[in-house]
Design a protein around this nucleic acid. Sequence first.
DNA 1: CCAGCATGAGACATTCTTGTCTCATGTGGA
DNA 2: TCCACATGAGACAAGAATGTCTCATGCTGG
Lengths: 189, 189
Amino acid sequence: MAVDRDHVLRSAAALLTRKSTATMDEVAKAAGISRATLHRQFAGRDALVRALEALGIAECEAALEAARPEEGPAGDAVRRLVAGIEPHAPLLAFLYSENQLFEGEERNEGWTRIDDRVAALFRRGQASGEFRIDLTPAWLTEALYGLLASAAWAVAEGSVAPKDFTHMVVELLLGGARRPDTAPQRKEP
Amino acid sequence: MAVDRDHVLRSAAALLTRKSTATMDEVAKAAGISRATLHRQFAGRDALVRALEALGIAECEAALEAARPEEGPAGDAVRRLVAGIEPHAPLLAFLYSENQLFEGEERNEGWTRIDDRVAALFRRGQASGEFRIDLTPAWLTEALYGLLASAAWAVAEGSVAPKDFTHMVVELLLGGARRPDTAPQRKEP
DNA sequence: CCAGCATGAGACATTCTTGTCTCATGTGGA
DNA sequence: TCCACATGAGACAAGAATGTCTCATGCTGG
């Protein structure tokens, strides 16, 4: 009977998100299998991380697909995208920090595809006049990833309630901390 | 002649920011000293990271002090704070990702002090009506760290120009991506 | 000038992780 | 029932990083 590869990947993601230096043995135990079996499935730690990366890319692309980024107001599309990514945010947070280790090596082209589509969404919002143009699409894309990772970590820490995840990320990303349309209450002397 | 401890720390910070898994030998070479001397200064890798953490805390507190967070509009104080932290953002980014390794262990209380002061700044902005109140101070604080780390990484990658660092972080954090389509907001010259 | 001291270089043991192998087991399908 | 195959358990060696030690060297202050 073949090992449930998907279950192994998700266990590994959950563990590595909490402890990025976990041993292959710890990963195996977390998945409820032996180190030997884990090694039969994934040739090594590197292969495991690559598989997790592929999983993260697939989930991001699925969320991107489901969010219909070309449809309706860009702001609404961003909200749909964040809401769709939310369940996978912990894995994304792990991959985001792990990305720094890919310094010299080639970056998986899947990320480039995702980057391009997300940046295109922000660019569309700028073209339609919905988003400001002094923040570059590349930066908005990067900031989205950073906020997703921060929020995932904050939820894991308990400083943000899980149900507030999407609201916190979307509202900060789109609206910012400054109070919007209310009358300016400046108390100038 | 005693080794320039500050120089060693800064070299280590620069290297570890790029390659967080760098060996003690690599750290020593980057600082231009031998592994033996490095080990005489810092009892081990752990001690080195702790020293870097202390350095980051000191720099954050200095920036916090210089930003005068109790003075003037909260938005301006946030801008001063980000501008002051900018030079240390790479080190902060490294410590931010390294923080995840402190899972079980006690967290340096310096971070708590900084968190409290930053959160107090956001809370002050909320109390004065300058900031919206549906985003909690804890989340705004966390998001600030995340954006600083993202921006530092984006600058290192080359996708954001160094001179845009403060503007990108502050404008996204305070104003968000959405275009302020209401009244034209006043900007002091 | 000379003694002391910090440094650089390197050897060494230890520990940890990994990759590989073997073997017993037990379970499902022919 | 019986066989094939996947699994679990564990042994084993290789490699890497670390911590510790020794020794020679070169500089500096007395």
